[in-house]
């Protein structure tokens, strides 16, 4: 009877384990998670704390040399510097346009590949740019854009699109030229993620849609899109987090020029920290960049979680 009494809650009330069982994990909770917390602290919290410390100091690199406390001087300098705000503006422009193009084109590519007979071969070919290191991609495109011997430059000039102008030497064109490199390199990643989402779209629903007379476009928006929303959010999150800290393409292609027209915030941060070794000032920039990444990342994940909690979209939402 005692055995039956102890067993009964497990059998009849799966959602409510017995009190003894519910308390048992707590006893071991701290010792069990302590190593993981210690490693996490070492890897994340300590550098973060150090970053905060540096942002209030003038940092001396020499071992043993004391750092000088400067209060909020680095922060005041940062917020008062027009180049800092311009860096944000350029970064927002670059990230926003790249992301929209990559998600749009990536989804289109995934839909086309999903129906293709040569899906595996084509996805391998399309993924090639993604295999190239960003700095190598930057150098490759620098040669293509080069105003003296660049092939793309020559094509655009021949088509009369540049009208005697230049690609990387123009404050108006340079940023868009780098956006194009990013789109070339990372659209395949979005396509791959969306393609994996498309594989999960229930066939019976698609077939029902076709039977009801919906064309491919309507079927995509009414049936497929709600199912791949999670994949799209993951793609957006990954591309956002990548773009907000990118410097490779910028270093290889323009170095921030001409006339600072491509000096996005991460490049400005890199220049201050590792060209001029203003580590305190660089830390304050890095912290704001980190904060924005966390906030926007959290917002995107929040949207994803809300959607998950609500379950599949209703017909009206679609």
């Amino acid at each position: 009877m005692a055995l039956l009494d102890r067993a009964s809650p497990d059998v009849h009330d799966v959602g409510n384990p017995p009190l003894a069982n519910r308390q048992q994990p707590r006893r071991y909770l701290i010792p069990l998670i302590l190593p993981a917390v210690a490693v996490l602290a070492l890897l994340s919290i300590y550098p973060l704390a150090w970053l905060i410390y540096m942002s209030f100091h003038q940092v001396a690199l020499a071992p043993g040399a004391p750092d000088t406390f400067v209060g909020t001087a680095n922060w005041t300098r940062m917020f008062g510097n027009p180049q800092y705000w311009e860096g944000w503006r350029l970064l927002a422009l670059y990230s926003g346009v790249s992301m929209v193009l990559e998600v749009g084109l990536g989804t289109l590519l995934a839909v086309l590949l999903n129906r293709s007979k040569h899906e595996k071969l084509l996805i391998t070919v399309f993924l090639m740019p993604m295999m190239v290191a960003p700095v190598v991609a930057g150098l490759l495109w620098q040669y293509l854009y080069n105003g003296t011997f660049g092939w793309y430059f020559w094509v655009l000039r021949s088509l009369g699109l540049l009208d005697g102008g230049t690609i990387l030497g123009s404050s108006d064109h340079a940023l868009w030229a780098i956006v194009l490199v990013d789109v070339w390199e990372w659209t395949p990643l979005v396509a791959l993620i969306v393609l994996s989402g498309l594989k999960l779209v229930p066939k019976d629903q698609m077939e029902a849609s076709w039977m009801d007379g919906a064309g491919p476009v309507r079927s995509f928006f009414q049936v497929a899109l709600p199912s791949i929303k999670a994949s799209l959010i993951i793609a957006v999150l990954l591309r956002f987090m990548d773009n907000i800290r990118i410097i490779d393409h910028f270093i290889a292609l323009t170095g921030g020029g001409p006339a600072n027209s491509t000096k996005v915030l991460p490049l400005y941060l890199y220049e201050q920290s590792f060209s001029f070794f203003e580590l305190g000032y660089g830390s304050s920039i890095a912290l704001t960049l980190l904060l924005v990444t966390i906030i926007v990342g959290k917002l995107v994940v929040g949207v994803f979680e809300t959607r998950e909690a609500k379950g599949p979209m209703s017909e009206e939402e679609v």
Partner: peptide, 21 residues
């Protein structure tokens, strides 16, 4: 100078000279 002068650094301007620009 050439219209792409803003993109020509020391090495690139030498390339431009070599290319007859």
């Amino acid at each position: 100078s050439t219209p792409d002068a803003l993109s020509l650094g020391t090495v690139e301007v030498a390339d431009a000279y070599n290319a007859g620009k």
